[in-house]
Computed example of a mutant assay.
Amino acid sequence: MAYFLHVRKHKVLRISEAIRPALGEKLARSWLGNIIDILFVFGMLGGGATSLGILVPLINEGLGGLFSFTPNATSQIAVLVGTTAIFAVSAWRGLKGGIEMLSDINMWLGLAVLLFVLVMGPTVFILDTGLNSIGLMLSNLVQMATWTEPFGDLNGFEDTGFHQSWTIFYWAWWLVFAPTVGLFIARISKGRRIKTMVAGSIFFGSLGCALFFIILGNYGLYLQLSSTLDVIQVMNDQSANAAFYT
């Protein structure tokens, strides 16, 4: 997509441009290309709705704890409207004045939170467990990625539903955003080398996710194992969102 936008000078940036080499110029500009673009729009709407459905209750719970009010439907609607307004304004202000500024703020705030938890929390435990987890993931990646729990509810086996609720759900969620991210990267890739964009997208994106899981995940694990906070009990009695802010 970046090639067609910046090298071939195509003025319209569409997801169907990505399949132009496979389908050819005629098919990509025909009804098939239009259908692909329409499906992309619906997929993007579904992905955005899923993101809001997950994040809005989390933000609502955090604001409730911060300002001492009980989260309810009204506050949740207010958070939804406010979040949507922020996204709309950032998109309206453009790449430099809106989206880039919002992304920078989010990145630095996220790094500040991670650094604070790492330094002020059980640093050695977090680092030790993080390193151990990386080894376990690399050793069991194929097995975990292809585990479908085929014996669930058979002959006494428990059907946990883990692969539906986590593996398949998150795969589908992020796959929906793959075309959107591709369009965004194509838009900002002018003047950059292909290997730079590929390395940056894969390495730094994965690094950010890994840092959050290693630091925040292991901090929560430490609270549970050290009996500092019964995270599981909070999740069972209240919700996962409540456990995040307890």
Rank of each mutant, 00 (worst) to 15 (best):
A2T: 07
Y3V: 13
Y3C: 01
F4V: 11
F4H: 06
H10N: 10
I15G: 10
E17T: 09
R20V: 05
L23S: 05
L23N: 06
G24Q: 08
K26W: 01
G33S: 11
I35A: 14
I35H: 10
I35K: 10
F40P: 00
F40M: 07
F42L: 14
L45G: 04
G47T: 08
L58D: 04
G65P: 03
G65T: 04
S68L: 06
A78N: 05
V79G: 10
I86H: 05
A91M: 14
A91D: 01
W92A: 14
G94E: 09
S103H: 08
D104I: 13
D104C: 02
N106Q: 11
M107V: 10
F116P: 00
G121T: 02
T123D: 07
V124K: 10
D128C: 02
S139M: 11
M144V: 08
D153V: 00
G156Q: 05
D159Y: 15
Q164P: 01
Q164C: 00
S165E: 07
S165H: 12
W166Q: 11
W166R: 07
T167I: 12
Y170I: 02
R187V: 01
K195H: 12
F203W: 09
G205N: 07
S206G: 02
G208I: 03
C209A: 15
A210D: 01
I214S: 09
Y219C: 01
Y219S: 05
Y222E: 03
S226A: 13
T228I: 05
L229T: 11
N241E: 15
N241L: 03
A242C: 02
A243G: 12
A243I: 02
A243P: 03
T246W: 12
